[in-house]
Deep mutational scan, measured.
Amino acid sequence: AIERGSKVKILRKESYWYGDVGTVASIDKSGIIYPVIVRFNKVNYNGFSGSAGGLNTNNFAEHELEVV
């Protein structure tokens, strides 16, 4: 089962992080479509409006993740 702290591989082909491994930061139990927040070591794009980097978290559905 996917739980907080799990290392997961991203299976969503259109994702910037496809094939990468991230760490589960949290799981939303409220029934939303993409409840699993995954944190990565790298950012997906340069930040804007003065922020240092881009996003390094993204929401995924459990079926888009594979525990490694």
Rank of each mutant, 00 (worst) to 15 (best):
N58P: 03
G31C: 14
K7Q: 13
S30H: 06
E14C: 12
G53C: 15
V38H: 00
S30D: 05
V21N: 03
K42M: 05
N44V: 09
L11P: 03
V68K: 03
T57Q: 10
K42A: 07
L55V: 14
E66Y: 06
E64D: 03
V38K: 00
V36T: 00
F60L: 02
R12I: 05
Y45E: 15
F48G: 14
V68D: 03
S26C: 14
R39V: 15
A25P: 01
D28P: 02
I32W: 09
T23N: 02
Y45G: 15
S51A: 12
K29N: 12
S51E: 15
K29E: 11
F40Y: 01
K13H: 06
I2E: 01
K42Y: 06
K7A: 07
R12E: 01
F60I: 00
G22C: 06
T57R: 06
G54Y: 08
G31E: 14
E66P: 02
L65N: 01
I32R: 09
E14H: 06
E62I: 14
V36L: 04
G53F: 08
R39D: 06
V24K: 00
G54C: 15
W17K: 00
A25Q: 14
I10T: 01
W17M: 02
T57L: 07
G5D: 04
G50H: 08
E14L: 06
G19M: 08
V38C: 03
E66S: 06
A61V: 04
T23I: 11
N59G: 12
S51L: 10
V36D: 00
S51T: 13
I32V: 14
L55F: 11
E3W: 08
G19S: 04
A1R: 13
D28L: 11
N56A: 09
N41T: 12
K9E: 02
Y16M: 06
F60Q: 01
V36H: 00
F48A: 15
F40S: 00
E3R: 14
K7L: 13
S49H: 09
I37Y: 08
N59Q: 07
E66R: 06
A1T: 13
S49L: 11
G47I: 05
L11W: 05
A25E: 15
S6F: 14
I33P: 14
V8G: 02
G50W: 06
N58E: 15
V24C: 04
V24L: 01
G31R: 04
F48L: 14
N56R: 07
S51K: 05
G22Y: 05
K13R: 08
N41I: 08
S49G: 11
E66W: 07
V38P: 00
A1E: 10
E66K: 08
I33C: 14
T23S: 04
R4D: 05
K13P: 10
K29T: 13
G31T: 09
S51W: 07
S6Y: 11
N46W: 07
E62K: 08
Y45N: 15
N56Y: 10
L65G: 00
E62M: 14
N56Q: 08
I10E: 01
V21G: 01
P35N: 14
L65V: 05
E64R: 02
L55P: 07
G22T: 04
N41Y: 08
V8S: 00
A25D: 14
G53I: 11
D28S: 08
N46H: 12
G31V: 07
V67C: 04
D28M: 08
G22E: 01
G47T: 06
V38R: 00
A52C: 15
I33E: 14
T23Q: 05
G47V: 06
G54K: 06
G53E: 14
S30W: 04
R39M: 14
A52Q: 13
N59D: 05
E3F: 11
G53H: 11
A52V: 12
R12N: 05
I37A: 10
W17V: 01
Y16R: 04
A61W: 06
R4G: 05
K42R: 09
A61I: 02
L11D: 00
A1C: 14
V38D: 00
I10Y: 02
A25M: 15
A1Y: 09
E62A: 11
G5T: 02
A52R: 04
I33K: 13
K42E: 09
D20K: 11
G50D: 14
N41F: 08
K42S: 09
G54V: 10
V68S: 02
Y16T: 05
E14R: 05
G19F: 05
F60N: 02
G22A: 03
F48E: 15
V8A: 00
S15Y: 04
N46S: 09
I32A: 11
E64T: 02
I27Q: 01
L55I: 14
I10W: 02
K13G: 04
A1P: 13
E64L: 02
S6H: 07
A25I: 15
Y45T: 15
V8L: 00
G50N: 11
A25Y: 10
H63E: 12
N41P: 09
I37H: 09
E14I: 05
I37K: 14
I27H: 03
Y34S: 06
F48Y: 10
D28Q: 06
G47S: 09
W17D: 00
N59F: 08
E64P: 01
R39G: 05
G50P: 11
N56K: 07
G19A: 05
G54M: 08
G50R: 00
H63C: 12
V43Y: 15
A61P: 02
A1K: 13
N58I: 08
Y34E: 05
H63K: 06
G47E: 15
G19N: 10
F60R: 01
P35H: 11
V24G: 01
E66F: 07
G31H: 12
G31K: 10
V8M: 01
I2S: 02
A1Q: 14
V8H: 01
S15E: 02
V43H: 14
E62R: 09
E64C: 05
G53W: 05
P35M: 14
E3S: 13
F40R: 00
K13W: 08
Y34G: 05
D20C: 14
H63I: 09
I10D: 02
L11S: 02
N41A: 11
S30R: 07
G31I: 07
Y18V: 03
A61T: 03
N56T: 12
Y45D: 15
A52M: 13
E14G: 11
G54A: 09
V67D: 03
E3M: 14
V36A: 01
E64I: 03
W17I: 00
L65F: 03
K29D: 09
I32D: 12
V38N: 00
K7V: 11
I37G: 04
G50T: 10
E3D: 08
Y18R: 00
R4L: 14
V24S: 00
G50V: 07
W17T: 00
N44T: 07
N58K: 06
K9M: 07
E62V: 14
N58Y: 12
F48V: 14
R12H: 03
H63G: 04
I27K: 03
L55M: 12
Y18S: 03
D20S: 09
A52P: 12
L65M: 03
N56V: 10
P35E: 10
L11H: 05
E14Y: 05
N46K: 06
H63N: 08
S51N: 12
T57Y: 13
N56M: 09
G54F: 11
G47P: 14
A61K: 06
V68A: 04
A25W: 11
N59A: 14
D20N: 08
